[in-house]
Write a protein that binds this DNA or RNA. Sequence first.
DNA 1: CCGTGTTTCCAAAACGTTTGCGCAAACCCC
DNA 2: GGGGTTTGCGCAAACGTTTTGGAAACACGG
Lengths: 367, 367
Amino acid sequence: MTPEVNRPGGGPSADLRLGPDPAVRAPTIKDVARIAGVSVTTVSHVFNETRPVAADTQARVRDAIASLGYQPSRLARALRGEPTRTLGMLVTSSNNPFFAEVIHGVEERCFERGYSLILCNTGDDRDRLNAHLATLLQKRIDGLVVMTTNDDLRFFDDLSQHRDLRLVAIDTEDLDRVPVVKDDSGLGGALAARFLVERGFRRVGALAGPLGHPRAQYRLEGFIEALAGEEPPLTLTHLLREEMSLEGGARAMRHLLSQEGPLPEALFCMNDLIAIGALHALHQAGLKVPQDISIIGYDDIEMAAYCQPPLTTLHQPSADIGRSAAEALIRQVEGREAAAGVLALPPRLVKRASVGWGAAAAGGGWA
Amino acid sequence: MTPEVNRPGGGPSADLRLGPDPAVRAPTIKDVARIAGVSVTTVSHVFNETRPVAADTQARVRDAIASLGYQPSRLARALRGEPTRTLGMLVTSSNNPFFAEVIHGVEERCFERGYSLILCNTGDDRDRLNAHLATLLQKRIDGLVVMTTNDDLRFFDDLSQHRDLRLVAIDTEDLDRVPVVKDDSGLGGALAARFLVERGFRRVGALAGPLGHPRAQYRLEGFIEALAGEEPPLTLTHLLREEMSLEGGARAMRHLLSQEGPLPEALFCMNDLIAIGALHALHQAGLKVPQDISIIGYDDIEMAAYCQPPLTTLHQPSADIGRSAAEALIRQVEGREAAAGVLALPPRLVKRASVGWGAAAAGGGWA
DNA sequence: CCGTGTTTCCAAAACGTTTGCGCAAACCCC
DNA sequence: GGGGTTTGCGCAAACGTTTTGGAAACACGG
């Protein structure tokens, strides 16, 4: 009655088998065909509903599919030219909270569109990046999301040689051949500057990222430009460059505290990690935020609202950035759109307690 | 001299092509064979160094490979029975900082061993999980890392039916057929309890996770047991169950503050997110940590050292957990080891400023 | 009984790769 | 120069799937 039941361990040689047991491999279309007593062609047509099949044949095939739990091999399909429906993502570190939120957005949109995402951490190491790239190409991914702090634009030119690989970049400079999704860093910097000035600060500094870090660079430029546009024009009193991490922020702050001369009234940090690191160093030094110094961050990672004090920062729609990037990439993959353009999502100022009022405050002051 | 140069746009029909241009697809072994003037067999043997080939033939083949930038299709290889060298990972949310660190460890080890990792966020939604699973099976992944807050053990039984899919679980209860990597939660809870008692606290409470959350449950049990083992035995003065997130911790703390009666002297939080959320709520209420109440967390996420005050917590070797899980999985995939066993990595107490001294403190006290 | 559709299904090729088998040429030794 | 061995390489099948081109079987009008 059930001739297809396979009882493992029944055969005398059961415990001699060491390699993959051929009896337990994933069922193929051939197995279905054999059980249903039809050809593989018919199975395929039933499964994909791509040509009419007689009702009773269809029933037999469906039964066989169900009883075997048959699922077509995407490998075989891809070999025939179908897209693999797999995307790659190169990212500096999936640990970084901001990156993590973007990745989450990318993955979410991929899932909605039926794609899988291969995650690759490069640690901004060129060898790792190239190794990952080679693997991804061998696996014939349909497209690639790049979110690395990459200063080398030739990288994207090299990559766009692979004409069957679609690309999208996150938070880079504008590129000729590759669509870019980013936040409007210049605007973000300007918003930060205007807010600090509005709060009555005149002596403001910045904790910046390393030179050549595009994201951080544009934020800083927007900040400096907006300061210069004030009446009277302002310039930075302090500018420190450090790694964009908690420890980097703490180091920068400790260094600033060890210097001679008065502190700035307010500090613009190029991301929230730096800001939180700076808060930590200030607290350790016995200084109070925002009474002794005001701190403003960038990104609005989830933790920002839970710092002590809660961090005033520029909110980036990180998940939106991720979703938009995935969307742009999938659009290209499916040939619905040309590869071009820059999508700059506007940041938004989120006022919390880490910024107070400066000496030159118009009205307001400490409530 | 260079007959293989392909100048796009040279042909009259160049701009009529809309679909994928056959001239720009990834080069195949056939292309190499044609250019080198040999059979595909020979190309394969040269590429894989699997049979001696005459020196000059070899040179021609290598030239062709280099000029085309040929990379063998993993799809085709996998179709022939080679492993796909792709693993899947089901995770509740890659956003969670602790999960993010584990994922990073998994990815790192995968990379070292030549595997790729497909990341799947389930949000602990059963439909999403099943959808992801179906996709991963169709893509014929070699193995799967599961790190979900899954209370349904039948899930793993169902999964281990797929005999060609290797499994590893992170932070679940012990399983029969599936190796498990986790931290020694009971020990962690006990360490927390003993430390609080040592510091002279008698009235201690806990901010726990939801019922049925295995990780959180064992931590709590270890904590309660160790308290009961003290002389005289102690019991929890407060036990609140909440979502294991920043907002959950803040909510729980606010709720506790709104209750009648004295606060506990110290609170054991089931993870650092809850602890940091609680710190936030305490600060908002004008209470000081550790003067008014002591807080101890669990996980030691990177942020824990940068809180205000820095968080005393139980350090989990999160990246190690990830690496070990990947290692165990790959071992199975490559058939070097049976599928069994539990690896429990011991947590370690990290003393920072969020825990002070209780009324019953033996010596010490505020330095 | 013969054309003419229509329905229902199958054979085979193709995708890119590896590999067992075998064939031919070159070499060696007497 | 004849047998045997070695060297060098190609043919073809197989992996799982889709798809094109038919081929049988059947119905129907004449």
